[in-house]
C-alpha cells in the first residue's frame, strides 16, 4: 500500500509541474506587466516612485528577463512559500489568501459531503426501485439541479430570503464576527451560515452523482455474484449493502477526481453572488485588476487542491478495491 501511495505521489510531480506552467502562462497572458502597472498606479496616486524599490522588485521577479527565467524565479519563490506581492493590496500575497483558502476548503468539502450524503442514498434507491414514481421524480429533480447554474440558484435563494423572510443571507459570518479572532461563538456562527453555500454549491454535482450511482448499481445488480449471495440465503437488504452497493462505491469514489474540481469551480462563482469570504471574489477582483501574483497564487493553489483530490480518490479506491491494490 505504501508502495502504491509512493508511486502515485511520484506520478503527481509532473502534473503539478504542468499545473504551475499552465498557471504561469495564464497570468502572463494579459498585455502589460505587473511592475509597469504598479509604477503607473503609484504615479497616479501621486506617491513618489521609489526607484530602488522598483529595481528591487524587478530583480526579485526577473521582470524584463526571458519568460523561463521569470517562471523559475516565481516557482522558486512559491516553493519557499513566497507567492509574491499583490500590487493592489500592496502587501505579500500569502497572508491575503491564507484564511480565504482555508474557508474555500471548508466550503468545498462540506459541499462534497452534502453531495455524497444526498446522492448516495437516492442513487441506491433509484437503482433498486428502478422506474418507480420516486425514481422518476429524483431523476427529474436531478435534471433540474443540473440545469440551474450555481449563481442563479444563489440569486434565487437570496431573492427568497429577502422577499419572503426579509433578511439577507450572504456571507459566512455575522457582522460582529467578521474579522474577529476565532472563538467557539464564531465557529457556531460560521456553521449557521455554511449550509446555504453548501447546498447551493453542492446541488449542481448531486444530479450527476445520483445518475452515476444509479447506473453503477444497476450494472452490479445484474452480476452473477448477487445471485450467488441470494442463493446463500442472505436477507435482501443486507445482501444489497454488502455486495452490489459495496462494488458500486468504487466508481462512485473515483468521481472524486472530477467532482472536486467541479465544486471548486462552482464555489468560485457562487461565492461572488453570495459574497462569501473565500477565494472566488478575490480571485475575480485580482483578475479584473490584473493583480497577477495574487491571481496566480489562487489559481495555483486551487488547481493543486483538485490534483490532490485526484490523488485522494486514487488512494481511497485502492483501499476499497483489492484488484487495484494488487496490480
Amino acid at each position: 500500500m505504501l508502495h502504491f501511495i509512493g508511486r502515485r505521489l511520484l506520478a503527481m510531480v509532473p502534473f503539478l509541474l504542468l499545473t504551475s506552467v499552465t498557471v504561469f502562462t495564464l497570468i502572463q497572458l494579459p498585455p502589460g506587466d505587473y511592475l509597469s502597472n504598479y509604477a503607473a498606479q503609484l504615479a497616479e496616486s501621486s506617491e513618489t516612485v521609489d526607484q530602488a524599490t522598483l529595481e528591487n522588485l524587478r530583480q526579485r521577479y526577473g521582470l524584463g528577463q526571458p519568460l523561463p527565467v521569470q517562471y523559475l524565479k516565481w516557482m522558486g519563490g512559491v516553493l519557499q512559500g513566497d507567492f509574491g506581492q499583490s500590487f493592489e493590496w500592496q502587501q505579500p500575497v500569502w497572508p491575503l489568501i491564507r484564511e480565504r483558502l482555508g474557508l474555500t476548503l471548508l466550503v468545498t468539502l462540506s459541499a462534497l459531503l452534502f453531495t455524497w450524503a444526498v446522492a448516495l442514498p437516492i442513487g441506491i434507491y433509484s437503482a433498486v426501485r428502478k422506474y418507480s414514481l420516486a425514481d422518476y421524480l429524483f431523476t427529474f429533480l436531478g435534471f433540474v439541479g443540473l440545469a440551474v447554474p450555481g449563481f442563479l440558484l444563489g440569486l434565487l435563494v437570496m431573492y427568497v430570503a429577502v422577499t419572503w423572510f426579509g433578511q439577507s443571507v450572504g456571507g459566512l459570518f455575522s457582522e460582529q464576527y467578521e474579522g474577529a479572532p476565532w472563538s467557539l461563538d464564531k465557529v457556531l456562527d460560521l456553521l449557521a451560515h455554511l449550509w446555504i453555500p453548501m447546498i447551493v454549491i453542492g446541488l449542481s454535482g448531486t444530479a450527476s452523482l445520483i445518475r452515476i450511482m444509479r447506473a453503477n448499481l444497476l450494472d452490479e445488480l445484474n452480476k452473477p455474484y448477487v445471485e450467488t449471495a441470494r442463493a446463500k440465503g442472505l436477507p435482501e437488504w443486507k445482501l444489497l449493502l454488502r455486495y452490489p452497493v459495496r462494488a458500486a462505491l468504487n466508481p462512485f469514489v473515483s468521481t472524486l477526481g472530477w467532482i472536486l474540481p467541479h465544486l471548486v469551480s462552482g464555489s468560485v462563482i457562487v461565492a461572488v453572488v453570495l459574497n462569501l469570504p473565500i477565494a472566488g471574489p478575490l480571485l475575480l477582483q485580482s483578475l479584473l485588476t490584473q493583480d497577477m501574483y495574487l491571481a496566480g497564487a489562487f489559481l495555483l493553489l486551487l488547481c493543486c487542491l483538485t490534483v490532490l483530490g485526484t490523488l485522494l480518490s486514487d488512494i481511497l479506491l485502492a483501499l476499497l478495491d483489492p484488484r487495484i491494490r494488487f496490480e
Binding site: 495564464l26 474540481p261 471548486v264 469551480s265 468560485v268 487542491l305 483538485t306
Partner: peptide, 8 residues
Amino acid sequence: ISLPTIPI
C-alpha cells in the same frame, strides 16, 4: 479534467 474549469 482535474483542473477546476471556472477559475481557468
